[in-house]
Design a protein around this nucleic acid. Structure first.
Lengths: 211, 211
DNA sequence: CGCTCTGTAGACCATGTGGTCCAACCTGTT
DNA sequence: AACAGGTTGGACCACATGGTCTACAGAGCG
């Protein structure tokens, strides 16, 4: 994490730095993102930067947490008592998150890039992972409820299913909409419908259908 | 492409260089992969390398083509006349490819990494894309046959569906098997069954089920 | 004024990068 | 023996990287 001073630093500096970092990390893989370029774009000197941060990793972790926190939050949900209720809940969450994504596309790209670096960069992982446990746990809780209520197949490990549904969504999103496209309300709805329909198909138990 | 000489160069040098390049490109994103490290690992000097190749991009492109060609080949197929026949064909192809992947895991990682760099690196793209058209076209042909015969939904753009099925496979593969796991024959079969089952579900037309 | 404390600038460093260049080395031919 | 051609080693280059360090500016305060 950054030095506590960063919280009280000049607002413009804060903003410029984080914006520049977001753009850089969004456009290049973590290892190829350049701190010098970030500082240049932000108009912040080396001295100032290292006055607030430990190192490059520190900046990435800070940025990641700032951007990913809202994305990982799913809010409160009612424990569903039927498959229909479960899918309604999933639809709601999926729609809400999608709204985030389409309005924060480069943020999302940035988060994904840093996230994929986490797998290999130990320092990054240590600073970032803990903050994510709550969100994941909550999502798991909802999915478990889905299993309990018979909406989700139980023959696959839940993390695998979770990841799969996420990947399906991203795959389609990338395929269907060009990088700079801003979705209309209608597109947003129809895309959500499509994704949830696929999620239902994928998640139904192998032998019997979803009743 | 490398200088023609490379084709007739010392076999050990060829092998060492390509092996080292594969390992390096497999373990780091393209931009972060180091040519110096490759040469060191291969025991090949700068002089020799630049005697055979134009630059780093050239090496990556060469390697990519060498590794990806077999992966992109789907061989001959009979034009299916029923959904069942179509899915049988898909099962066969999927199984064959999977066998490739599990026996060439780092090759696959390498190919994916370079492939993802293609999106942003123009030089790389120009040298690589053309060689891929045939394989893609053939796959498209099969998928079109699938649409014709009613096995595939037609409400999604075909490239999107193609990509989606590919991503589903990869997502599950990564989730279910750790990086160094070598699949047994039985695992290979059951994984293929799982993937094809999912593909059927995903590809069925929105309103009616797959009869 | 002079002191301290917070913040800033940017020269500087060691290291790594992709790429160039040339002297030497082998091997075959005359 | 002398030459020629295809190879190789590796010193070297300009530049970019993340990170350090020192000098200094400005504000608050006695």
């Amino acid at each position: 994490m950054p030095r506590p001073r960063f919280a009280t630093a000049d607002a413009a500096l804060r903003q410029n730095l984080l914006d520049a970092a977001r753009d850089e990390f969004a456009s290049k893989p973590y290892e190829a993102a350049s701190l010098n370029r970030i500082l240049l774009a932000a108009g912040v000197s080396k001295g100032s930067f290292y006055y607030y941060f430990d190192d490059k990793t520190d900046l990435a972790a800070t940025l990641f947490l700032e951007l990913a926190k809202p994305m990982a939050t799913i809010g409160e949900f009612e424990r569903p008592s039927s498959p229909a209720a479960f899918w309604a809940e999933m639809h709601r969450i999926s729609y809400a998150r999608l709204k985030d994504i389409e309005s924060m596309r480069t943020e999302y790209e940035c988060v994904m890039r840093i996230a994929s670096a986490i797998a290999t960069d130990e320092a990054l992982r240590d600073r970032v992972m803990p903050m994510f446990a709550p969100g994941r746990a909550k999502m798991m809780e909802l999915l478990q409820a889905g299993v309990d209520v018979g909406a989700l197949r139980s023959d696959l490990p839940m993390p695998a299913l979770m990841q799969l549904l996420q990947d399906v969504k991203m795959s389609l999103f990338k395929s269907l909409y060009p990088a700079d496209h801003v979705l209309s309300e209608a597109e947003l709805r129809s895309f959500t419908d499509l994704v949830i329909d696929l999620a239902k198909r994928i998640s139904a138990s192998p032998k019997g259908g979803t009743p």
